[in-house]
Design a protein around this nucleic acid. Structure first.
Length: 427
RNA sequence: GGAGGAGUGGCUGAGUGGUCGAAAGCGGCGGUCUCGAAAACCGCUCUACCUGUCUCAGGUAGCGUAGGUUCGAAUCCUACCUCCUCCGCCA
């Protein structure tokens, strides 16, 4: 959530409003919000003045009672009853204003950082660099779902039988590959200073609010109404919310966390898109990286985080590019995002495999994650960041395409050789 | 799932309607003493928001959460959540 103080303060208001417009927030909402904030202040002042009167009166009444001054007691009590009525009159009005403010503020996206290009859509994203070598095939490479099906590696039909479209079943080779890949990625990140957590795959609504999924994007997630729980769309949600309503000491930061979890997405708006294969599915495994840091470090930590995600792609010798998202394509909570996209040799498409974002204090404010500044003793919001490190399903899709042989087989020897590099860390 | 008990400041723990943001202790910070340290002693130690003459002053709110009763609630009432104990079930 944005710092509403920035909208109340005349010095910062103009700039913030401008940034929000560039992200496509409608003008009416902004105007209404600014006006309602002003009204709320006025009403609050009235209310607090009355409450003050009430508190002082109640104190005097207590004194009268103790001293047995019945007449004065009743006289003042009648006056206080009037004050009470006045308070009861203002209270609901204030509540209404606050609801209005929340409704708008909760749906406002984050502002974005100066180096983010201003743009409307994906078209305006900027390719930062292209890495690795473009794979060179002496034959026409097949798409991953074709090889997987032909070699009996993935059972798409039975996935559909069990759960419907966009579900799948891995047979033994891919099951083992995924298991090893996840272990490999985790160990690489642990080596890089990340601390592994095993977290719930079902979280409550307040977690979903904290990281910015709720309330605006409720339809994109699986929800179990009976228990008020939601299947996590990414481990970002539980990992970030681990520290909700907590205050770090400055020495504890930066804190790096990682977790491998399944991710569940309804893909409600994606009918007919990427219907074949592992690219767009309702459930997939992903290793996630999350960072908490002090505000002045988040730009630097963002770059380091990007490198950590890239390490995986480099290790498997994939051809990929780093894309900087434009203002219009940024996720709701993000202030700056790099996407890592792998080149897919069969379709000649770039496939997003990691999204590396800096949220500044946007999530921290929603989830109330703070730290105590040592020199001033003041509490401030931390900055949160996260990256996929990386999505296992899409990585497998890429590996199947990159490591296919002219004979229509998979070069398991080479894959296993790459997986052999151990990242062992004995506690 | 059933029965009982409990949720108070960083922690322990008092408070069952009237100067209670809340005793006391521990921890933490600062100071006195000391060559230094310990001990002892003194002081300070929660958060959010509002207003202003905005590194300071005043005010409002907060005792699991949300409501309610009252002139006045940590204290009474209702619902929910969490934890503990016992029973049942179970990987």
């Amino acid at each position: 959530m944005l710092d509403l103080q920035l909208l109340r303060n005349e010095d910062t208001r103009g700039k913030i409003l401008d940034l929000l417009r560039k992200r496509g927030v409608c003008e009416d909402d902004l105007e209404l919000l600014v006006r309602t904030l002003e009204l709320r202040s006025q009403l609050m002042f009235q209310l607090e003045t009355l409450q003050r009167e009430r508190n002082q009166g109640a104190k005097v009444l207590g004194e009268y009672k103790r001293q047995g001054r019945e007449e004065e007691f009743h006289e003042l009590k009648e006056k206080m009853e009037v004050v009470k009525k006045q308070i009861e009159g203002i209270h609901p009005q204030l509540l209404q204003l606050e609801n209005k403010i929340e409704e708008i503020a909760h749906n406002l996206p984050n502002i974005f950082l100066p180096d983010v290009p201003v743009g409307k859509s994906e078209q305006d994203n900027v390719v930062v660099r292209v890495c690795g070598e473009k794979p060179n095939f002496s034959f026409q490479p097949k798409p991953h779902y074709e090889i997987a099906e032909q070699l009996g590696l993935i059972d798409f039909a039975r996935g559909v039988k069990l759960s419907g479209s966009r579900f799948y079943v891995y047979n033994e080779e891919i099951s083992a590959l995924e298991r090893k890949l996840i272990n490999f990625m985790l160990e690489m990140h642990i080596e890089g200073g990340y601390r592994e957590r095993t977290v719930p795959y079902l979280v409550n609504d307040s977690c979903m609010f904290g990281t910015g999924q709720f309330p605006k994007f409720k339809d994109e997630y699986y929800r179990i109404p009976q228990d008020g729980l939601n299947l996590i769309p990414t481990a970002e949600v539980p990992l970030t919310n681990l520290y909700a309503n907590e205050i770090f000491s400055e020495e504890e930061l930066p804190l790096y966390l990682t977790a491998a979890t399944p991710c569940f997405r309804r893909e409600a708006g994606a009918a007919g898109k990427d219907t074949r294969g592992l690219i767009r599915v309702h459930q997939f495994m992903k290793v996630e990286l999350v960072k908490f840091c002090v505000p002045e470090q988040s730009r630097k930590e963002h770059e380091l985080l990007l490198q950590d995600a890239e390490k995986i792609l480099k290790h498997f010798q994939l051809y990929y590019r780093v894309v900087q998202l434009c203002s219009g394509d940024l996720g709701f909570a993000s202030a700056q995002t790099y996407d890592l996209e792998i080149y897919m040799p069969a379709s000649h498409r770039w496939l997003e495999i990691s999204s590396v974002s800096n949220f500044l204090d946007f999530q921290a404010r929603r989830a109330k994650i703070r730290f105590k500044r040592k020199h001033s003793g003041k509490n401030e919001y931390v900055h949160t960041l996260n990256a996929s490190g990386v999505a296992a399903g899409r990585l497998i899709a890429a590996l199947l395409e990159y490591y296919q042989t002219p004979e229509g087989q998979i070069d398991w020897g080479k894959l296993h050789h790459l997986l052999e590099k151990r990242y062992l860390r004995v506690p």
